[in-house]
Design a protein around this nucleic acid. Structure first.
Lengths: 132, 132
DNA sequence: CTTGACCCTGACATGATGTCAAGGTTGATG
DNA sequence: CATCAACCTTGACATCATGTCAGGGTCAAG
């Protein structure tokens, strides 16, 4: 299967397929006589694995770890679960941080009349010294 | 005030102070005879404005808009509020996306025994084709 | 043989930030 | 005065995941 087809069936751009190969997430595929990459069904499955993990917000580095565990028949499920739960916590922390920003911003905006006058507590709030 | 002092009092790294100058968020400061940057209290206030806006997750581009409104005595508070609320919505969308990832991941992890055996629904789940 | 749809590599860009290198300045101490 | 530490300067490279473009090769259908 050519790279274009692999891209279509996995939803991973050709650019990123080549990138995953360069950084070692994907093994170098077979090449046809003309130099074109030729992907096996196993490679396509691996691409799908990567795509799914990306959709769950794993970094390429974390995905490398997951792929290592996937390839390792001696792995224990607890190793995998540890990685997954650590990432879930990370996601939770990040979501909470965004939510906190949103609340702080809405609080600032609450006092703003939003009319034609120039007075604006949002701007003056931003200009104030604030505890970091 | 030298850049080091400005950095300490605002919490903005020297690197970023220079960067904000380069991209036009900060006006070029006065220079002493030796070439050192010399910051006025107004400049320091502007730096603090930027720092606070960054803490609320505004991009430098959005901050440029906010600074433009800050500088403009003819602005209406509704212009400011529009920018702020749009950003708040953006924050909400991003937080929700992270939260959705977290839930999906926890759902996957739920079926994982987390013991010494190699069977792991997390890995097999990641390998499956999934609706994008 | 031409055209369009593929494929190849390599390079540059994004955004916000860190870090390092190589050098000038200043103030204090020996 | 020499030196040393603590400043300051600019410029360049690195990060992370991804897009895009340039310049070229390949292939199949008309």
């Amino acid at each position: 299967m050519n790279i274009g087809q692999a891209s279509k069936t996995t939803g991973v751009s050709e650019r990123m397929i080549r990138h995953y190969e360069r950084v070692g997430l994907m093994p170098p595929p077979d090449r046809r006589d003309n130099g074109y990459r030729d992907y096996s069904p196993q490679s396509v499955e691996r691409l799908r694995f990567i795509a799914n993990a990306r959709d769950l917000g794993f970094s390429l580095e974390e995905i490398a770890t997951l792929l290592g565990l996937w390839d390792d028949r001696e792995r224990t499920s607890s190793e995998v679960k540890t990685v997954a739960l650590a990432h879930a916590e990370d996601l939770g922390r990040k979501a909470a941080a965004l939510e906190a920003m949103r609340c702080a911003l809405l609080e600032l905006a609450e006092g703003c009349s939003g009319d034609n006058r120039p007075d604006c507590p949002i701007l003056s709030g931003l200009a104030e010294r604030r505890a970091r």
